[in-house]
Write a protein that binds this DNA or RNA. Structure first.
Lengths: 220, 220, 220, 220
DNA sequence: CATGAATGAGACTTCATTCAT
DNA sequence: TATGAATGAAGTCTCATTCAT
């Protein structure tokens, strides 16, 4: 991949080798989202990545570790990005929250990665180690990001004083719920498809941001 | 159990026999909610119902059919109640929505039945038959109920005009999400337990209902 | 088996069921001795016992537990028997030791059970739990039995004072070694078969018991 | 490793190459003795020899062949030494036997080489080829050596007339047994460690040699 | 010669389902 | 109707062996 590599071509084998982890993660994401964690077979993950079962274990020592790697690649990185965007943001807090949620929807909610939330909510109880991992790696950072934005709004006098964590949850829940929902019923034709995600998102933002706003004191 | 029991009306044995299906459904609900569908063992369902594994198959021909029966019994009855309450309601639409959501939380969200939503979202993709069923029996009625309340508010001049289904979703999502969340991470100590459900519910209502309100035109 | 059982015949199924554990233990002993512990497949144990693989796990929860059961049945019981014989023995200590070793040879050394010693010596290092088990269940009791007999001889003035545990080991080692040896090379025709076990045993006893004896004090 | 090395006689690389088979055999011996044949991984053998797994297969076509080579190399050299010592011995036959056994213990029993006996006894049944080899190379010469010494003692009037092969076995068994035993249980703390090998050896010799002796006629 | 990524058969174990009693 | 012993397919993971580089 790197043209400065000593061997100019490296051959297909070398190229394959470097791409393996990514190919495996992609295959795993697709299958986990489709069938769930427990119902996915390591055989099939490998098969979809075009390798044998043994090769999968060459890169990831267990099914659980494979799942963690999928989570890290698809969720952890996005949260970090959001944190970065928030830290340098100049506009109003409403714009910031709106921007964060819309970005999240484009980058996660509307992609296969959204299915991860479904898996976690559904199966984490049977895999306690994953619960801890997901909490540390996803839930805590996400809460911190959104709570921080709300606090920013309150401090700047844009928002009413409100409980931070609860507002953060109220902000995130509908988009996550919609993402999960589409992943569950999306495959079933004619069901739940009648709602337009963009309209739902806009409506949700319209409602909640207006609900947050300090009501410009009418002269009364 | 004792055949020498001369009690009339068939005796305890007969009563047991007739109660079997219900006992099995109860045991299955508990276990499915706790572990999920795939991770629940038929052995344990039978054991919790106080019968042998063979007996389970006498009443339900497979684990899948048992699952469907559990879903049918526990979800279908929940919607009608809300519909009834809404139809005779006299107060403001905000009060109506607030009342519906709080009641739902008490009667469903905070009980084992909430776990069914988790199961369905997680596993419906592996049971296409259930998707149709869940859509018809749960999603459509729930949407109709909440959409209707929002429409009532708009018609009575309490709420701004807004897209009905999208608002309905924005209303329901956070409470369902929270219910699911508690079922997933509730068992893990110190995780997700720091949010107070009542406070979340109040905050959510505070935000969304205020967001729905027609802003009383300042000058008038 | 119990004639007072309500059903006089119980049918072949019932009879099979009661015999299962014994049939499985027999099959396991044969196979373990033939191939070793690690190289024996649970499939084959079950097959030789005439049941399916699943049935094996109905009676023994793991391969290791199956092995322990084999050891218990074939070795532990014999040692207890020897202890009993020793406790009530009236004759000389030489006769007692001679009798114990000859009995051991007949009941263990010359039967498939002797192969267990081979397995343990060879593989115990890879299964630490088995090491502890075997030590507690076999080695310690066997040492106690033989040490006790030697001590009896010394106390009664038949034997010279000697270190008990070391003599016990010197007494047991050749017969165990011979048993192992026959199990290893016994299958190979014409090898190691030229020694007559009975003659070896007699010679060993002749040597060691004479070595133990208090040399009748020559008049000096 | 550095190709620019101008050192004569082929340089370190060449030396490495020629030493490979020996390094592999050494690593294999260590590992086989430690873990047994089945539980040893070819990966680890190669790693301990400082080469890759593929290289191992360049020198030995399979794990079984490697095992055979290890046994062959390590057993063949062991016997000749003892024979040499015996042939020129001048003292009493008791001293000769005592010396042989003590030397064997120092040179073999107390070293990793003793582990080979454990491996052979345990696994020879799965490698019929090895049985013949072990018999010819080890058992027959060892028996010849010890039988010869006993015969020498009888001929010189030191020992009672006794069956030669059986006495030989009675002489060798305890030390071999103890050596094997230490290799099996030696790793387990507090087990079998309570016997002092030197004391066992002395006790064994004390017993058996006294048992062999012509009882010096009391009156003289 | 040497490498190490890749393979795939096969190990132990689980569990939904059946059926003789 | 009720039982529970029995089944065997299928799951995750290991590891001896191969082969392109």
């Amino acid at each position: 991949m790197n043209p400065s590599s000593p061997s100019p071509d490296a051959g297909p084998r070398q190229r394959r080798k470097e791409a393996r982890p990514q190919e495996l993660l992609d295959a795993a994401l697709t299958l986990f989202v489709e069938k769930g964690f427990a119902a996915s077979r390591t055989d099939e993950v490998a098969q979809r990545a075009g390798v044998s079962k043994g090769t999968l274990y060459l890169y990831y020592p267990s099914k659980e570790e494979l799942f963690k790697a999928v989570v890290r690649q698809n969720l952890s990185s996005l949260i970090a990005e959001g944190e970065e965007m928030a830290s340098g943001f100049e506009g109003s807090s409403s714009e910031l929250l709106s921007c964060l949620l819309k970005t999240w929807w484009e980058r996660v909610g509307n992609t296969p990665a959204a299915g991860i939330h479904k898996i976690v909510l559904a199966e984490v109880r049977n895999f306690p180690e994953l619960a801890q991992f997901y909490n540390d790696e996803v839930m805590v950072p996400a809460d911190r990001l959104f709570s921080g934005c709300v606090q920013r709004g309150i401090e700047r006098g844009e928002f009413r004083p409100m409980p931070l964590h609860e507002v953060a949850l109220a902000l995130m829940a509908p988009v996550i719920f919609m993402a999960i929902h589409r992943h569950s019923f999306g495959a079933c034709p004619g069901q739940g498809a009648e709602v337009d995600p963009t309209l739902v998102l806009d409506t949700h933002l319209d409602l909640v941001l207006r609900g947050l706003e300090v009501r410009t004191p009418p002269p009364q």
